[in-house]
Simulated assay, not measured.
Amino acid sequence: MYGKQKKTRKYATMKRMLSLRDERLKEKDRLKPKKKQKKDPSALKEREVPQHPSCLFFQYNTQLGPPYHILVDTNFINFSIKAKLDLVQSMMDCLYAKCIPCITDCVMAEIEKLGQKYRVALRIAKDPRFERLPCTHKGTYADDCLVQRVTQHKCYIVATVDRDLKRRIRKIPGVPIMYISNHRYNIERMPDDYGAPRF
């Protein structure tokens, strides 16, 4: 019996191809050498500078002031129930001023989708002290809705415990964040001038 000759396969072998700049190619098939365009030094350089809203005076947002309008997130209501906190009263205890919790259609739809388990959260969200904000955009993704709203109107405080949403809100100048820690509400990035407590 003759032994089979082992054939070693060459891995990652490629067919050799001609470069488009190769001299052996015909003139029409060859890639033309690129000519560098000289920049005109006298031409005006265009730069896109983001337009800052007029309500921001350095880091102070002049549109913020009592009564505070607080945009509430779904998980903020759920965590408040777990911590046995009354939303409106705890907000007032935190900010020492009148607070109006606002709830968007997206957040409301999100709570309704969660079903029977979150019926207490739904009952709280339907509280007459809460202000309902109608949404005009497509879809019901609450995070995008809240980010879009505070980018356009800087008169809100965002109440959330969602880490990703907090990260997105922090990038928007002049928007404070309310969160829950040690069984009470705390505020992040609130200027001292507005009488907000510093923890």
Rank of each mutant, 00 (worst) to 15 (best):
74 T>H: 05
119 R>V: 06
128 P>Y: 12
94 C>M: 09
141 Y>E: 06
126 K>Y: 11
173 P>F: 12
175 V>Q: 00
148 Q>D: 10
145 C>L: 07
99 C>G: 01
133 L>C: 03
138 K>S: 09
119 R>L: 14
80 S>D: 03
161 V>E: 10
156 Y>E: 04
133 L>M: 05
98 K>S: 11
137 H>D: 15
98 K>M: 10
126 K>H: 12
88 V>W: 11
168 R>N: 13
66 P>T: 03
132 R>H: 13
183 H>T: 12
75 N>C: 15
97 A>Q: 02
179 Y>A: 02
160 T>K: 00
118 Y>S: 09
117 K>R: 13
85 L>R: 02
84 K>R: 09
174 G>L: 02
162 D>R: 09
186 N>K: 13
98 K>A: 12
173 P>G: 14
139 G>S: 00
166 K>C: 08
97 A>S: 04
99 C>R: 03
113 K>W: 08
86 D>M: 06
89 Q>C: 06
91 M>H: 00
183 H>E: 09
170 R>K: 12
184 R>T: 14
142 A>P: 01
70 I>V: 02
152 Q>E: 15
131 E>M: 07
174 G>V: 00
185 Y>C: 08
129 R>S: 13
115 G>V: 05
141 Y>W: 05
169 I>A: 05
92 M>N: 11
88 V>S: 05
94 C>R: 08
177 I>W: 03
135 C>Q: 06
107 V>R: 07
180 I>E: 05
85 L>H: 04
190 M>D: 08
98 K>P: 07
171 K>A: 13
152 Q>I: 15
96 Y>H: 14
76 F>K: 10
66 P>Q: 00
86 D>G: 06
114 L>S: 15
93 D>F: 12
147 V>W: 03
159 A>P: 00
127 D>F: 13
145 C>T: 01
167 R>N: 13
169 I>F: 05
85 L>N: 02
102 C>I: 01
154 K>S: 09
85 L>K: 02
138 K>F: 08
131 E>S: 05
152 Q>M: 11
147 V>P: 04
117 K>L: 08
86 D>T: 04
79 F>G: 15
126 K>L: 12
125 A>Y: 05
133 L>F: 03
154 K>H: 15
112 E>N: 10
116 Q>E: 11
183 H>P: 11
153 H>E: 08
109 A>F: 13
111 I>G: 10
81 I>F: 04
159 A>E: 00
104 T>W: 07
185 Y>H: 09
91 M>I: 03
153 H>G: 15
120 V>S: 15
136 T>A: 15
176 P>G: 02
86 D>S: 05
92 M>L: 14
112 E>Q: 15
179 Y>P: 06
93 D>H: 10
145 C>F: 06
144 D>H: 01
122 L>Q: 06
88 V>K: 12
113 K>A: 05
133 L>A: 02
145 C>D: 08
96 Y>T: 15
150 V>G: 00
180 I>F: 07
179 Y>D: 06
151 T>M: 08
159 A>I: 01
81 I>R: 04
155 C>N: 15
87 L>E: 02
